[in-house]
């Protein structure tokens, strides 16, 4: 119908700005290298930087998949808001919850 047709038209238009398959493969290679780096923390001793490094790698992988494979980089910002809004709310709420629970390992009133 006309509505979706209009939306479709923009989609079609976007399709031209979309990355090429070659770019997708490049992103996948980057992701593979990052994963190899992640796994290497298990085999080699990275000392104190191991955990911060893993967190950073996780975030980078997350952003790459979301930005390229899920097209967030190229799409309407409202989609990013939905996704990162939900993610932020979850992080804040559950960090608070875990903090409250850990703060009180010795129950007193």
């Amino acid at each position: 119908m006309s509505t979706t047709e209009a939306a479709e038209a923009t989609d079609q238009h976007d399709a031209h700005d979309h990355p090429t398959p070659r770019q997708y493969v490049n992103i996948a290679v980057v992701l593979a290298v990052l994963t190899a780096l992640e796994v290497s923390t298990y085999f080699f001793d990275f000392g104190v930087i191991a955990i911060p490094l893993l967190v950073v790698l996780m975030i980078v992988k997350f952003i790459y998949v979301a930005g390229w494979f899920m097209h967030l980089k190229f799409d309407s910002p409202i989609f990013s808001r939905m996704m990162y809004g939900g993610l932020t709310l979850a992080l804040v709420l559950y960090a608070l919850t875990i903090t409250v629970i850990l703060l009180d390992q010795a129950p007193t009133l």
Binding site: M1, S2, T4
Partner: peptide, 22 residues
Amino acid sequence: AEGDDDDPVDDQHDATAPTAAA
């Protein structure tokens, strides 16, 4: 009836139909 949402069967009449529903 009117074809699929993103593959309309008949859209000439639709020119005035706003905010179509899936």
